[in-house]
């Protein structure tokens, strides 16, 4: 066990590194401890600059520096893996309402979408059930690529500059997925109906025939022919993007 005195000394060093506020620390060489503070600050700043390049460009230098500085000083980083720290940064900024403070309403959505892009790109590989490339759209189950996130935004930061997006408050639904072949991450804006379909397929692989009564119930669409005519190109588009990997009749 460390003695309480040693623990206290270690904590003082750490507190100084986080806040930059001088601590009374015994046995240190004059003008040397600040190098640790600078190195740690730079690690956090570099990590966030890499993760959130669009946010950094949008904010003023003072605003960005305040976020990094406050985050380092006030947040206790929980992950031992620095590349996951941007997730904690996003939560910190959102929970502490910097969007209001900076009068930049789209800030949370922009940080969120930049983080989700990283999350989808790096998310651990998930095995998929056996499937075949070709099948019957109506009767075969559709097998989804599991490397995706469905998200809802309040501002359309995915296709507008964040400043402009702030003027377009609403409900924006996005599918963010990792191409199964190239591993590149792509965004696709969806209507609520298509979100519903992907959610159903995520919960349980099913065929279009299985989907139709569920859609009828949820959205009151009972014109099956029109629905099928709309679903077919959507499903084909998802297949071309590897969001749907293929078919299964098991």
């Amino acid at each position: 066990m460390l003695l309480n005195e040693t623990i206290d000394i270690q904590n003082r060093v750490a507190r100084y590194c986080k806040s930059g506020i001088e601590e009374d620390i015994p046995g240190v060489t004059k003008n040397r401890l600040h190098n640790y503070r600078r190195l740690i600050y730079n690690i956090v700043d570099d990590t966030m600059s890499t993760a959130f390049p669009i946010t950094k460009e949008w904010l003023s230098r003072d605003e960005w520096d305040m976020l990094v500085s406050d985050f380092l000083a006030n947040h206790s980083a929980q992950t031992p893996q620095v590349w996951k720290l941007p997730s904690e940064f996003y939560s910190y900024v959102k929970n502490n309402n910097y969007a209001n403070r900076f009068k930049k309403e789209a800030l949370n959505d922009l940080l969120f979408i930049e983080w989700i892009e990283i999350e989808v790109h790096t998310t651990p590989d998930i095995s998929v059930p056996e499937y075949k490339a070709d099948g019957d759209l109506l009767s075969d189950k559709l097998i989804l690529n599991p490397h995706f996130r469905l998200i809802q935004l309040t501002y359309p930061v995915h296709n507008h500059h964040a400043g402009e997006a702030s003027k377009n408050r609403g409900n924006w639904y996005l599918l963010i997925y990792r191409n199964q072949e190239t591993n590149a991450v792509h965004f696709m804006q969806l209507s609520q109906l298509y979100v519903f379909i992907i959610e159903q397929l995520t919960d349980n692989p099913m065929s279009v025939s299985d989907l139709i009564p569920l859609i009828n119930t949820a959205f009151g669409i009972d014109d099956e022919a029109t629905l099928l005519a709309n679903l077919k190109p959507f499903i084909e588009s998802l297949a071309a993007k590897t969001v749907i990997l293929g078919y299964s009749n098991k």
Binding site: I9, A14, I43
Partner: peptide
Amino acid sequence: TKAENAHLFDLLPIP
């Protein structure tokens, strides 16, 4: 690299 329940991501000197 960790104190007071916070990771710091740099190598601090142990007394």
